[in-house]
Design a protein around this nucleic acid. Structure first.
Lengths: 149, 149
DNA sequence: ACGACTTCTGTGCACGCGCACGCAACCCGA
DNA sequence: TCGGGTTGCGTGCGCGTGCACAGAAGTCGT
């Protein structure tokens, strides 16, 4: 029973947008992470690695995941360790570079990702579909594209 | 020198929006956090507490911060410890409830917040102003408002 | 007035994560 | 060929954070 209801002081529209982005991002991440954990004992960080591995036809060097993912390169190493321990990904030495390691989803990993992705879509639908229309989705995509540059 | 450039597999617009939100949120948070750390040795989590305290005229119970903030209640306790150690906030027992604690910015805390908020705005301008127009800002605000409900 | 249930706060514990570092392997100029 | 610089990967370490819990204090029914 909170007595006083704090509200942010007078802030500009840009300030609201900044805080809203961080709030929405972390809240969504937590929501999806819990859903994945409950359904498959699968942290969101593991899922993200599998997500990037999914679209690929050829194996991917670990450095590429470190660059594209939100995770740091060391963390990629540990996540791959865990996924490998569960047989979801395979580490293979790179053909012409003995220090590099190529990573690819195993068939089991591909199946696990398909299931996990389904639960992610479901968890996302709970929050997105009922509240955001196509215009909002488009706006989000364009904002993301502009920020990436 | 990454050889293979991984790209996400074919995903729907909603999937892109989901990933984009999380990416933008964490990236922005990291950017601002670094700026605050460099300039004032002030983590973003501390700043957020001060942000909520700023607009308030009356002291705020700790539970209210735990509810409104992205931090958990235990973490609020620790952050307030740190801020109190620097003399930026003051803990005072609540008038008619001995278990509750009311928190308020000290004059030093108010000044520190003003400076920190300025550097935040500057760090944000580096990323926002040059890339996003007013329509994008408005879109972000409406999306945030819809998701909060 | 007294006991059981709720509410508010702060702490032990474990986990995820990034930074700094070490090591192995490649590259390139002498 | 060989030595210095660079790149890629994995590990020790410390920090921030959330969960589960304990303790104090308020509330309400009897």
């Amino acid at each position: 029973m909170t007595r006083a209801e704090p509200t942010m002081g007078e802030l500009s529209a840009r300030d609201h947008a900044f805080y809203g982005l961080i709030w929405a991002g972390t809240t969504l991440a937590a929501h999806v992470d819990r859903a994945l954990m409950r359904a498959h004992e699968l942290p969101l960080s593991w899922f993200e690695v599998m997500l990037w591995l999914n679209g690929q036809t050829e194996p991917v060097p670990a450095s590429a995941l470190g660059a594209k993912t939100l995770l740091s390169r060391p963390q990629v190493s540990r996540v791959v360790d865990a996924l490998q321990a569960r047989g979801l990904v395979a580490r293979t030495p790179a053909p012409h570079d003995a220090r590099s390691v190529e990573i690819a989803l195993t068939p089991e990993g591909l199946a696990a990702f398909a299931e996990a992705n389904a639960t992610r879509r479901a968890a996302l639908a709970d929050v997105f579909d009922q509240r955001l229309d196509d215009a909002d989705i488009d706006a989000l995509e364009t904002v993301w594209a502009k920020l990436k540059a």
